[in-house]
Simulated assay, not measured.
Amino acid sequence: MLRKSLVVLLACTVGGIAPVLSAAAVTVAAPTTSSDGAPAVGSTPEATINTLDGVLLKSMQGGRRLGYSGRYRIVAPVVQKVFDYRRIAALTLGDYWQKLSPEQQNEFVGVLADLTAATYAARFDSYNGEHFAIVGSQALQPGAEGVFSTFTEHNGKVHRFDYILQKDGDFWRIVNVVADGVSDLSLRRAEYTETMQKKGFAALIAHLKAQIAGYAKGS
């Protein structure tokens, strides 16, 4: 089952990561720890996912007490660290990415990071015993790995979150998330390239900022 999901995960990731399965077996994750016993953030793909899951639980547990802005302040620094937004931006925009100026590229990367934090802060807003669990991982090729995890609601319903991560120096960062079989990267690529083609870069940025404002207002 994990191997089948890995194939889907690879197929949903656009460019840059060759679809080569390693001979290594799927392994159950064992988080790396630092000298004080805490997870060594980003030192392994599993540690990166544990870091993300931990801050989302913290956001949920803060709930209304923190409010949207409080949850955003907790989530934003972590998602900035665990996602490779420049890589995601290039994969999302495809050929349009190279046509942007450095200033436009930096603006787009920043808005993507803000949108991710806003989405998490708005959606992970209450806690009633929900929990995350890493169920396995597999090397895809040198410097790329898939991590398989679940999110269980208080009523027992289980959602699947599969991640592709790439190594960036000594740190593992997320480049794609497949939630219940739906690739975030593929959805964004379809939406954003269509907007770029029809309306241009300024319209795309305005659209994403409107989404961010909508999350803030709706919460």
Rank of each mutant, 00 (worst) to 15 (best):
Q141T: 06
R173W: 02
L91N: 03
A190V: 14
I17E: 10
G110P: 03
R123S: 10
D95F: 07
A90M: 06
I134Y: 04
Q61P: 01
F201W: 12
A118T: 05
A11N: 13
N50T: 11
A210I: 01
T193R: 15
A47Q: 09
G129N: 05
D184N: 13
L93R: 12
G94C: 01
V175Q: 09
S137I: 00
H154Q: 08
R71H: 06
A210E: 14
Q98K: 10
K198H: 12
V8A: 12
S69M: 04
F201K: 06
P45L: 11
V7M: 11
G62L: 14
V182G: 00
K4I: 09
P31L: 12
T150S: 02
A202Y: 02
G67F: 07
A117L: 08
D184S: 14
A179G: 00
L66A: 13
A122F: 13
V178Y: 07
K157Q: 13
A117S: 07
N50I: 06
G67V: 05
S69K: 13
A30T: 15
T27E: 07
G16I: 05
L208A: 00
R189A: 13
K4E: 15
A118Q: 00
V28Q: 10
M60W: 04
Q211D: 04
K99C: 03
I134K: 06
R173A: 04
S59G: 09
I205Y: 04
R65L: 14
R71M: 11
V26M: 01
Q166H: 02
G110C: 08
A118H: 07
A122S: 15
L100C: 04
F161E: 03
D53C: 10
I174T: 06
G70T: 08
S22L: 02
K209I: 04
G110N: 12
Q98G: 15
G136H: 09
Y120E: 12
L52N: 05
